[in-house]
Amino acid sequence: MTITWRRVVEDDFPLLLEWLAEPLVKRWWNHETTAEAVEHDFGASARGQEPNQDWLALLDDDPFGLIQRSAFADYPEFRDPLARITEVPTGAMSLDYFVAASTLRGQGLGVRMISSMVTRTWVDHPGAPCIIVPVAAGNRRSWRALEKAGFTRVAEGDLEPDNPIDPPLHVVYRLDRFSTST
């Protein structure tokens, strides 16, 4: 089974709405689950009006997950607090992700999804020296997937959590372009 990618388009919003309401996704992504909120959060990217990119992960042409990919340079409000914890080189990229269906979790699909997007990122962004991913320290599944995909924990520190119920402690993972891990 091969993972392929397709950019999110407005016709995908009902699917995203369903996925964002799934309990584990809702817990860690903490998005509002109304049609208006999904339009607000994903519309500009779907129309190419925002620098971040939202990608549907497809397994044999069936969508199963989402990755948001962005350059830290485009979002100083995220880069600057992170730079107080760890070095954020010029050109560094970041990912945020989830496997939507609970029935597909725990099978290594998240690791494969992350690894596939890493490979695509190196091709799409030849100047990117690394990918840095801060994760809420309590989201063990997420940071374990990064480790299995070849990322290394490089820092820990306080960042604004996505979900206000979480403490600010984050673990920060990094994969350098010329790492032999992936």
Rank of each mutant, 00 (worst) to 15 (best):
T2N: 14
I3Y: 01
I3V: 09
W5Y: 15
W5I: 15
R6G: 04
D11G: 11
D12C: 07
D12F: 03
L15A: 00
L15S: 02
L16P: 00
L16M: 08
L17W: 05
L17F: 03
E18T: 10
W19A: 00
L20N: 09
L20H: 13
A21T: 06
P23C: 03
P23R: 01
P23A: 02
V25W: 00
V25N: 00
R27N: 14
W29K: 02
N30Y: 15
H31A: 15
E32N: 09
E32Y: 10
T33Y: 01
T34W: 05
T34S: 10
E36I: 15
E36S: 13
E36P: 00
E36L: 13
A37M: 10
A37S: 09
A37T: 06
H40W: 12
D41N: 15
F42V: 03
G43A: 06
G43F: 06
A44W: 01
A44G: 08
S45E: 10
A46G: 02
A46F: 03
G48N: 12
Q49F: 07
Q49W: 12
Q49M: 14
P51W: 14
P51S: 10
N52A: 08
Q53P: 11
D54V: 09
W55A: 02
W55S: 01
L56G: 04
A57R: 02
L58Q: 10
L58P: 01
L59K: 06
L59G: 08
L59F: 04
D61K: 14
D61R: 06
P63T: 06
P63M: 06
F64H: 00
F64W: 03
F64L: 05
F64M: 03
G65L: 06
I67H: 04
R69C: 11
R69V: 10
S70Y: 14
A71I: 11
D74V: 07
D74P: 03
P76T: 09
P76R: 06
E77N: 10
F78H: 15
F78L: 08
R79K: 14
R79E: 09
D80C: 09
D80N: 15
L82T: 05
L82D: 05
A83G: 01
R84T: 10
T86Y: 01
E87G: 11
E87V: 14
E87A: 09
G91H: 08
A92V: 09
A92N: 05
F98R: 00
V99M: 05
A100M: 04
A100Q: 02
A101C: 15
S102F: 02
S102K: 15
S102H: 11
T103H: 14
L104V: 04
R105G: 03
R105H: 07
G106L: 01
G106Q: 04
Q107E: 15
Q107A: 11
Q107D: 05
G108R: 03
G108N: 04
V111R: 14
R112E: 07
I114D: 01
I114N: 01
S116L: 05
